[in-house]
């Protein structure tokens, strides 16, 4: 049975790795649905009146095809995820970031995943982030850690709150 909520906000999850998108959604959502063509949809209830929806767009270049106008009314922000240790992943993430900046001015967090790292990383470097523009933040992220994913979410909210005063 579908539940009725009064207000929703939406978050788009982008990046060259669908696996990373799924991991983030699994960490942040109560419910996740995968589609055959590698899209992931998740939602989590914040209160009786407010619910967040997450859209993971998969590995292909769906950010260009995505129905941005359909989510535009309700978009809270986006996550752009990439593998910090993979040059190709970084390159694709940069291209997506360029595309986004041309088309769309929502708040967002660009996150470099450190889960594959072979050397220890100072925990304080993960999930805190810094702003790289008025609306966009960058952060390191440990995709194997639910706490790290939640920290990313807080970072996005902080970005929105800072901008809206």
């Amino acid at each position: 049975m579908l539940r009725s909520v009064q207000r929703t906000a939406e978050i788009v999850v982008l990046g060259p790795s669908f696996a990373l998108q799924k991991r983030l959604l699994t960490h942040l959502c109560n419910e996740v649905v995968l589609t055959r063509d590698n899209c992931a949809f998740g939602r989590t209830r914040i209160s009786n009146e407010l619910e967040l929806y997450f859209y993971g767009l998969g590995e292909s270049d769906k950010s260009k095809d995505f129905a941005w106008d359909l989510v535009a009314d309700k978009i809270l922000g986006f996550f752009l995820l990439f593998n910090w240790f993979d040059g190709a992943s970084f390159q694709k993430a940069m291209e997506t970031a360029d595309e986004l900046s041309r088309r769309f001015d929502a708040h967002g967090v660009i996150a470099g995943d450190l889960a594959e790292n072979l050397v220890p990383v100072n925990e304080k470097l993960i999930g805190y982030g810094f702003s790289i523009s008025e609306r966009i933040y960058f952060s390191l992220w440990n995709s194997a850690s639910k706490a790290s994913s939640r920290a990313l979410m807080r970072l996005l909210v902080d970005a929105v709150m800072t901008h809206t005063g």
Binding site: L50, A72, F104, A106, R150, R154, V157
Partner: peptide, 24 residues
């Protein structure tokens, strides 16, 4: 609408705080 092409939801500060608290 801000400078860009798209709008965004008008969540109140209280709602944003709720979201933040949810992921604390």
């Amino acid at each position: 609408s801000p400078a860009g092409f798209y709008n965004r939801p008008r969540l109140s500060k209280a709602e944003l705080m709720l979201i933040r608290q949810k992921f604390a």
